[in-house]
Design a protein around this nucleic acid. Sequence first.
DNA 1: CGTTTGATTGACCCCACTCAAACGTGGTGG
DNA 2: CCACCACGTTTGAGTGGGGTCAATCAAACG
Lengths: 270, 270
Amino acid sequence: MICVNKPEKNVYNENMAVEKKPALINLHQLKVSCSQCNLSELCFPHGMNPDDMEKLDTVVEQRKPLHKSDHLFREGDVAAGVYAVRSGSVKTIVESPNGDEQIVGFHLPGELVGLDGFMDGKHTCTAIALETTSVCAMPLEKLEVLCTKLPSLHNQMRRIMGKEVNDEHKMLLMLGKMSAEEKVATFLLSVSRRMEERHWKSSEFVLSMPRQDIANYLGLAVETVSRLFAHYQADDVIQVDRRRVSILNMQRLKEIVGECKGAEASAVKS
Amino acid sequence: MICVNKPEKNVYNENMAVEKKPALINLHQLKVSCSQCNLSELCFPHGMNPDDMEKLDTVVEQRKPLHKSDHLFREGDVAAGVYAVRSGSVKTIVESPNGDEQIVGFHLPGELVGLDGFMDGKHTCTAIALETTSVCAMPLEKLEVLCTKLPSLHNQMRRIMGKEVNDEHKMLLMLGKMSAEEKVATFLLSVSRRMEERHWKSSEFVLSMPRQDIANYLGLAVETVSRLFAHYQADDVIQVDRRRVSILNMQRLKEIVGECKGAEASAVKS
DNA sequence: CGTTTGATTGACCCCACTCAAACGTGGTGG
DNA sequence: CCACCACGTTTGAGTGGGGTCAATCAAACG
């Protein structure tokens, strides 16, 4: 059986390249397999036994790769399924009645998108590819049927939804209570932690989203994000070159998030 | 059978009174019944058929009433069940590593609390009574067992979780993109709408939470909330006396939320 | 009636937004 | 190959929204 995941670094490489052309082989023509995917520990099947994972393989479909700015689904769409990012990255946004939009999440390989629609059948947010991105799709009906047969899958769904709620709570805390400095530091640490989860360098990475999207996500102006990146660079906390970020002083970043009152004097003296 | 819900206005009265003593009869000694509860249309059983609702009655337990500031559960607690507010009101909060907290929701009679813990077994937020409050508890194990038997209940769980996710998305939008004026107007409209859902006066109500909690919830300072209440009162949009609020110009409030750029000049001229 | 808690109001100031301009960088076409 | 344009990013200057601090006031409570 052909498995696109065998070469263990490929998906990461595709993710890291800011604007790389699609792979030579046509991913969406290949059968995919959770049980042989190197992202399985992060993704849907995390913690499931091999038998159940093989059953999960029967419901997972590979989708045609998305290009940058392509929509995976839109707010209001009937929810066709849950998606796992395979390579690339995705942002999810919600729109306000008066037009402007709030980014509610960035999703890296192994992370799930579309859980919002799993619940009441319609998506409450819009998902857009930040770069060339491929996803695995798990159609709702098949997933539901399988859920009734596999208790482990049922638990898995619950665990995953729990993480979703937890993440949104953290984000409410960030938007409601944090200063701009804390927000940017939190964002960098969040990306770093998730890079580490993927066994990718945690202190040197390429952001797949423009400053505008980071600012939107954090509830800030673009200029503020740009300035704070510059400040942190001047203080040797990070090094930035366009979208490439290196974290030089992880401890300092954590101090800024943990207790900004005490740390900001030394962290940012402007 | 004795049913505390028969007198249709009682729970509302208890809710509306800011600091009223518990009812003369001891609520927690009585058997409760979803099928005969006048909140059923708003609460868990919404849309379920009478047969299924009666089965739901078997898992619902009445709890001893909570006093003001009592904890229903704390972050980190093992999730014992899902709770429906019966009378009174509850706030849910999340805590940041450095100590300060963000209120993530206010819950009125008929609304559910504890869904965050339904997912991965542990609560990710803390629930505190804002006033004397009674809740119905649905223990997790019983609920799960019943879910496997009743497809309608299973769908219900999903619908309810969907609402939860949707609500949090709206809140992210509010905290991330709205001005103080828009936030306060949104808050007032939200309370008004929920009062109407409960067939209670939608333009004249008593807030069960102090200014401090409103400010925290909206990501503002207490003084800002107080000032905006005063501004809106000066413009005859609302009338406030401590916690009692009357909405005089609902249309204006909606304009402020919908398109603050065009409306703020006439709505608030400072 | 003093105390406490919550709400209001005013004065002041700072963080972060807005406006504006300059600066790469990458893509396109001549 | 270079000139050109478009886009994202950076940087500076100025400002205003909302936070902070502090005093006052009102209601509830012992």
